[in-house]
Amino acid sequence: MQSQTEQESAPSSSFKTKKLDFTSLLDIIIGAVIFFAGWQAVFWLHLYPSFLFPSPLMVLERLIFLAKSPNPKFNLGASTLITMERLAAGFTISVGLGTGVGMVMVHFRRFGRTMNSFCVGLQSYPSIAWVPFAILIVGLNNYGIVFVVVISSVFSMMVSTYSSLRNIPPIYVKAARNMGEGGVSLFKNVMLPASFPSLITGIRQTWSFAWHALIGAEILMATIGLGALLELGADFAEMNQIIAAMVIIFIIGFAVDRVLFSMVEDRVRTKRGLNQIPT
């Protein structure tokens, strides 16, 4: 057939995926050096006494101390583990429940519209403001903390599932139905993958809401955990412990968002050719 010319003119299939190359690694190192140098410089100015404004080295010492501490209240590993367990529980429930309700919202139009405006209202409700409610109705325990995490993030998942599914190009559903697809199979094989790039953004946002709520709830409700470590630091005027906990919280947030979600999102976008415009 006469198709050769057309195949030759097809766009080339080589495109680069984003990778942590040498220059961006160098940029990160330079940024970190400037940051720590600035911190050290402010410390040397002695604007505050050293117990209120410790040097990077003092924070590092405290981190090592916390890592070695036999007391689980202070032990860095134990605190991080329990915080991550609460996060995993709350986040999983939020994503599962939010996706489920979001799907029901798409199916029942009037319920969806009403629920959507309700969710948007609840989404902007401060997560900490759920704490008194949670303490009385669930209790001052792990369940109470998970409750605060779920209630602060589940509505965001509902809204994003709802809008992701509603924004699928109708042609995909039309074409799939034309090929005999329907019901659960249509949902699983077409609607879910079609909405995935936008759904992953929603999941990312839900994680962010959950993470914010968790640390807040831990400060007020927990005896062990990264939030509790912050609170203990304040109680004993241990600024180096507060900053040590802040650093760990920052690192976890950074790792989950920038590394985990970013990688998944990037992979999906590259596969679908959404990453080809240089930013």
């Binding site: 042609i171 995909y172 039309k174 074409a175 139905r177 034309n178 090929m179 005999g180 329907g182 077409v190 993958p193 079609a194 995935f196 596969k271 679908r272 050719g273």
Partner: peptide, 18 residues
């Protein structure tokens, strides 16, 4: 009803990008 016996090819891009 809809059935796979009659298949339509659309003008728009209806292929699944995933």
């Amino acid at each position: 009803t809809l059935g796979p016996d009659i298949v339509m090819i659309f003008q728009e891009d209806s292929l699944f990008p995933w």
